[in-house]
Each structure stands twice: as C-alpha cells, then as structure tokens.
Simulated assay, not measured.
Amino acid sequence: MSSSPCTSLRRALTATATAAALGAVLTACGSSGTGHDMAGMNHGAAASATASAEAPHSMPGMDHEMPGMEGGNGLSDSQAGYRLTAQDAAVPAGTAADYRFAITGPDGKAVTDFAVDQTKQMHFYAIRSDLTGFQHLHPTMAPDGTWSASLAALAPGTWRTYASFTPDSGDGKGTALVLSRTTTVAGAATGTGTALPPASVTAQADGYTVTVTGDLMANMAHGMTVGIAKDGKPVTDLQPYLDTYAHLTAFHEGDMAFAHLHPETTVNGDHGGPDLSFHAEFARSGNWRLFLQFRTAGQLHTAALTLKVG
C-alpha cells in the first residue's frame, strides 16, 4: 500500500527535529490521531517563551515580602512611594522634646488620612543604637499632616525613630508600613559599645516576671506564648492596652530591624492572663531585643529581654 504525502513526511523527520518543526508537520497533515496525541508538545513549546517572560510574576511568593516583613523591616525612610520626613535632624539631650515629622505619599504631598490600628492612627518608636532607651508613643497630627511626638529625655548618641502606620486612602490604602530615620542626640554618648544582656526567656519588670516560650526560627511564622506572673503566682488581672492585653515590639541586634509581634489572645475585660499568645515572625536570625508592654491597675509596665532566634 502506497504512503500518503503526510506519512512520507512524518517518516522523514529525524530525532533531532525541533518541536516547532514537528508541530508544523502535524498541523499541515491534519492527522486526527497523531496530531491529537502530540498537541501538548506543540502547546508547551509555544507557551514556554511566554512563561519565561512572565516567570517573575507567576512564581508563588515572588511579589510578597518574606515572613516577618509585614510593613517592611523599618530600615528605610521610604517604601512604596511613601516617605518619612523630619523637621529636625537632631534632638537635644537630657530634656523632653517634641519630635516633628510627616509622611508624604507617592504624589509628594503630606498624607493626612490614616487607618486606625490598635486604637491609634500612628505608632511611633524611638530607641538608641545599643537598643536602650525604648519609647513607644502615639503622636498627634496637625491639619497639615505634621505629626508631633512628645519624647521623654534622650541620652546622647545615635537613635532611630520608627513610624508605623497604614494609609486610609490613595495608592497605599490598607497597606501597613514601617519607616524610620536616624536621629542624633548631642553630647558624649556612653555605654553604646556595651553588649546586650545575654539571651534569656525571662525578664523582670516592676515585680512581674515575664516568660517567653516558643521555638522561633527566622523567616518562619511561629506561635509564641508570653506568661506573666507576680510573686510566683500567675497574673489574671491584666487590663486592655491598645485593644489587647500586651503590646510586643522587637529590634534586631546590629542593624535594628523592626518587628511587631501580633497578639492573638481575645480581650475580655480586666482579667487577662496569665498566658498570652502571639503570632511571631522574625526576618533575621540572631539576637532580638523584645519590649513587652502590659497594664495592671491602671499602670503600664515594660519588660525587656534578649531573645535568640535561630
């Protein structure tokens, strides 16, 4: 039986023929059998160029920040078109001072519309380069978008100030951001070369003992529990602070990267404790200085400890 032109042409193909050539032959022959069986090869060859061009956008996780980086790590004064600007590059030492700053948006104008997060539109932090002198404030905003944070007296040295916020309008609406700047406090700095206290899972504050448990690893989300006791007895009279029973902030030793650990314990009146759950994500391994703030009998307490993250 004589061969058809298409059959002869198929037999003429060598093992080194390209997928594109094979696809062209099958299309020309219009075979309902072999052409159907090999359709996937032709489709794959045609799609490969497109897939290569789109790979950076189609790979899972490529457009998202690493774990622990919600809002960024706080080491830049700009992100996503938003910028932290400050009126003063230096702050006087040894006396209370107002630190004035603004957030400008992608259009270069001062942002005045902010979402409420844990009862506040703006969370502001100041800490010295040796991770001492921690302050967590809630500044006030003027109509023109200028914020004013009332800092307690700062010791001389290099400080970093962080602004944590979420725009409630514009391109960044709903996006949590953390921006920061370095600030100089004039005078002879002392103690800045002192190492952090050794890593420990316990800390003392105002007669309270704070204990942290959890197997923490960098770039991985983990549950973390904070237990609070006083005189050896579990505390059950924690009062809400910023819509939670404890606020937890951390700074990385060396580069001062920022992390805010999110509380998961449900608030139910003035009887929180003794154990509080947190969603913990750290972007870097090494030592982190943790600052836990909690309230009892109307008084705010701050416990600090050095936590080792693997």
Results as ranks from 00 to 15, higher is better:
241 Y>K: 02
304 A>H: 08
34 T>V: 12
12 A>C: 10
6 C>P: 01
172 G>P: 08
119 T>V: 14
179 L>Q: 03
75 L>S: 04
216 L>M: 14
43 H>I: 11
290 L>M: 14
87 Q>D: 10
238 L>S: 06
180 S>P: 10
124 F>W: 06
226 V>M: 11
56 P>Y: 08
262 H>W: 05
285 S>K: 15
12 A>I: 01
37 D>R: 15
182 T>Q: 14
90 A>Q: 14
16 T>C: 08
130 D>Y: 00
58 S>H: 07
186 A>M: 10
71 G>H: 04
128 R>Y: 02
263 P>E: 03
97 A>N: 13
171 D>M: 12
80 A>N: 11
284 R>Y: 10
224 M>D: 05
236 T>V: 09
185 V>A: 01
212 V>L: 13
270 D>M: 08
62 M>C: 10
141 M>C: 06
261 L>N: 03
197 P>N: 08
77 D>N: 15
87 Q>S: 12
301 H>C: 09
180 S>C: 06
178 V>Y: 02
120 K>N: 05
48 S>K: 07
308 K>D: 04
98 D>N: 11
56 P>E: 11
243 D>W: 02
83 R>F: 11
251 F>K: 06
102 A>G: 13
225 T>F: 01
134 F>G: 04
123 H>T: 07
2 S>G: 09
235 V>W: 00
100 R>E: 04
258 F>I: 01
298 G>N: 09
293 Q>Y: 03
185 V>W: 01
112 T>I: 08
46 A>Q: 09
262 H>G: 07
92 P>V: 05
170 G>C: 06
257 A>H: 04
10 R>D: 01
11 R>Y: 11
78 S>I: 03
110 A>H: 12
119 T>Q: 08
262 H>T: 14
161 T>G: 09
65 E>G: 14
80 A>T: 00
108 G>H: 13
222 H>S: 15
128 R>M: 07
186 A>T: 15
173 K>P: 04
50 T>Y: 11
289 R>D: 00
64 H>I: 10
57 H>Y: 13
106 P>T: 07
195 A>C: 05
180 S>F: 01
185 V>Q: 07
121 Q>G: 12
11 R>M: 12
226 V>W: 02
88 D>K: 13
128 R>C: 02
26 L>A: 06
248 L>T: 14
50 T>N: 06
129 S>R: 12
69 M>R: 10
176 A>E: 04
108 G>P: 15
255 D>E: 15
49 A>D: 09
55 A>H: 05
283 A>H: 01
71 G>K: 03
130 D>A: 00
70 E>R: 12
56 P>R: 09
90 A>V: 05
102 A>P: 07
6 C>R: 04
257 A>W: 00
83 R>A: 15
65 E>S: 15
5 P>N: 10
274 P>H: 02
276 L>F: 03
224 M>Y: 02
99 Y>H: 08
22 L>G: 12
145 G>P: 14
68 G>D: 05
109 K>S: 14
200 S>W: 00
168 D>N: 15
222 H>V: 11
76 S>Y: 03
186 A>L: 09
106 P>C: 12
10 R>T: 07
82 Y>I: 09
